[in-house]
């Protein structure tokens, strides 16, 4: 099928199947899936600036499906989501402007800078999440052994299943006393500065605008490790926030000519069904195991981008 806006020829089956896989992963991990969608589009010849904007558009459609499902499961903290939107939109604009500056140096420069940044970010996140999840699972195993010895009940252990080895960092951030301070009832956070939430969202937004996608691969772990939000709620809230911020990102990128909406529409037909399946699957897994299962995904995305950068050719 010819996609006239991006001047590419891509099989619709490739796009639908890619969307389906990304939909499952996105619904399960609460991420837009740009760490796979971006490289998948780049691999079939879509220019990197077009990849960034088109991926954002596809994420809008997909996140609507997954958010509705997560909302029904009680996994969305609306208060946190609305505050994060403000920081994310500001960050997206900064990221999109950076892409505009790079475009002045030609397509090759955009591809190289965005590609290398993408690889570094993906590998760093993957290694960090792997290390943290493993530490948490080890900690839980030890506690279970201790509990069996001392006779602590199953309920008390169950309540701690969604903890993180980095809980102490979140507790420190909760103590930062810069008004206004708020309570996030749905996330179980008693007191946190609005500025801490805005800063996390702003940084995620910069990555979203610069690398494409909703940047859930940064925001979801950041919500868990820095803001102390339970993993299930981080997944649902991130998706809700992504609907709004990716809509803004789509608009701003489309005005700059970076969106091939035809590609996004075809990809989304597969993602819609995948997102429902992924969101349903979160009911059967606990926090650290969801995070550990997340680890290979950014690495796959990084491998595809490295191949594209080194060979200078598309996978098509």
């Amino acid at each position: 099928m010819d996609f006239l806006i991006s001047h590419t020829h891509i099989s619709p089956f490739y796009l639908v199947i890619t969307g389906f896989i990304i939909g499952i992963l996105g619904g399960f991990f609460g991420v837009g899936g740009s760490f796979l969608a971006g490289p998948a589009l780049f691999a079939v010849g879509v220019p990197m600036n077009m990849v960034v904007g088109t991926d954002l558009a596809h994420i809008v459609g997909k996140s609507i499906v997954a958010t509705k499902k997560h909302r029904a499961l009680g996994n969305v903290d609306l208060k946190l989501g609305f505050i994060m939107v403000i920081g994310t939109i500001a960050g997206v604009e900064v990221g999109a402007q950076a892409i505009e500056q790079l475009k002045q140096f030609g397509r090759a420069s955009v591809d190289k800078v965005v590609g290398i940044t993408f690889v570094v970010v993906l590998i760093s996140i993957s290694l960090f999440v792997a290390w943290e999840s493993w530490q948490t699972i080890k900690m839980q195993r030890q506690r279970k052994l201790d509990a069996e010895k001392s006779g602590v009940g199953f309920k008390e252990l169950k309540a701690k299943q969604d903890e993180s080895a980095f809980d102490h960092i979140a507790r420190r951030i909760h103590k930062i006393n810069i008004p206004p301070m708020i309570k996030l009832r749905a996330s179980g956070v008693q007191r946190i500065s609005v500025w801490a939430i805005l800063l996390v969202a702003f940084i995620g937004g910069i990555f979203s605008g610069f690398l494409g996608g909703g940047a859930g691969y940064i925001r979801m772990p950041a919500m868990v490790y820095l803001l102390g939000v339970p993993t299930h709620v981080a997944v649902g809230t991130d998706l809700f926030e992504v609907v709004i911020s990716a809509s803004y990102g789509t608009l701003t990128h489309a005005i700059k000519g970076n969106v091939d909406i035809m590609i996004a529409l075809v990809m989304h037909t597969g993602a819609a069904i995948g997102a429902q399946i992924g969101a349903t699957a979160t009911e059967y897994f606990h926090g650290p195991r969801i995070r550990l299962a997340f680890v290979p995904l950014p690495l796959i995305g990084a491998a595809i981008v490295i191949y594209g950068l080194l060979s200078g050719e598309n996978l098509k």
Binding site: V65, L251, V259
Partner: peptide, 25 residues
């Protein structure tokens, strides 16, 4: 007209998102 294109692009993907969610459910 890039501005009109941007608005229609967003409306199309949102509409498709809502409709496909209803169809799959």
């Amino acid at each position: 007209n890039k501005t009109l294109y941007a608005i229609i692009a967003l409306l199309l993907i949102i509409t498709q998102g809502v409709v496909l969610e209803m169809v799959t459910s």
